[in-house]
Design a binder for these strands. Structure first.
Ligand SMILES: [Mn+2]
Ligand SMILES: [Mn+2]
Ligand SMILES: [Zn+2]
Ligand SMILES: [Zn+2]
Lengths: 166, 166
DNA sequence: CTAGAAATGATAATCATTTTCAATTAGAAA
DNA sequence: TTTCTAATTGAAAATGATTATCATTTCTAG
């Protein structure tokens, strides 16, 4: 399974997974606003990291993001990338994705919540929304007296093209 | 079997939550059979590890299991515990539970699949089954041409008693 | 401007998990 | 039962992602 592939190498995410789903473009002022909203000082590093995250592929690892940022400004340390990513996760600007034992992946928190379905052969990730499932989750929580804060739903299987390869 | 019942905790580990949900008791022969079925040699270490896992609390970490086993036979190394646990996970004898960034927890794979709802305050874990959700997952997979192999569904929230503490 | 809190980044530390490898052992065959 | 050998073991080292340290630099409120 792709979960056993060595660390450091980029997962074979197909090109269509590398497009950002954020249609809107962000100006430097937008970026600064976002940083200020999390009560952090605006620094060139944070602007660059956030910008790169926004422009780049979704579901990126801290390491991948660090490498991308490095190519633009080699003065950015990976500690800063990890730190900022962690901060953004805390303030919900980004969402952490922990799939299996692989390094954590990040995506800018989308306006509308979605879950993920991953092909265990090629690593393709499909995003989906299903209100019925979300409603049922609430129902389960209610049955046990829980007040839900969040959830993790990941589907794993074989995608169409990988099925045909066999 | 474990419907409407909560088992184990992740964080505080109260003693009264250490009951196994496996009603059946396993004889040494049962243990040996299970090990042989995964095409592994029967060793005293593996018997002890499996037995301890069966008797102990569900949702246990490798480290916790190692410590329990140590008390009975200090000749068992933690590499063996990790290795055997990993092997059992591969042959589906145990199920891995990766919650957030905490160390992996293990449980003997139950006859009937269940998912987990965790209190983020006290760590209480509630196991639940919901056929509707499972069906909807299949439906989603079908929509995208995926052939599902497994899934991860974790609900997080505040349990009843933790809600009252506020 | 300036002060001082916040941020940075090189480096070391953490920590769960995996690997290595020499010594031991299970268990099939003789 | 004895032999043989591949599988297993455990101590220790390695790994890899992530986090902490801390001396230095940089924001930004005033
Ligand atoms: Mn996504
Ligand atoms: Mn369980
Ligand atoms: Zn695929
Ligand atoms: Zn609670």
């Amino acid at each position: 399974m792709f979960e056993n592939k060595s660390y450091g190498t980029v997962l074979p995410l197909p090109a269509n997974n590398e497009t950002s789903y954020f249609d809107e473009s962000w100006t430097e002022d937008d970026l600064k606003q976002i940083i200020r909203k999390m009560n952090l000082k605006v620094t060139p590093q944070r602007i660059l990291i956030l910008q790169t995250l926004h422009e780049g592929r979704v579901h990126i690892t801290a390491q991948e993001l660090y490498e991308k940022v490095q190519k633009i400004n080699s003065d950015v340390g990976f500690a800063t990338v990890y730190r900022f990513l962690k901060g953004m996760a805390e303030s919900r600007v980004v969402t952490e994705l922990r799939m299996g034992s692989m390094p954590t992946r990040y995506e800018l928190t989308p306006k509308k919540h979605h879950d993920h379905m991953t092909c265990t052969d090629c690593g393709k990730i499909v995003e989906f929304q299903n209100k019925n499932i979300e409603d049922l989750q609430e129902k389960v929580a209610r049955q046990y007296g829980f007040k839900l804060t969040h959830h993790v739903l990941e589907l794993y299987g074989i995608c169409t093209s990988c099925q045909m390869k066999k």
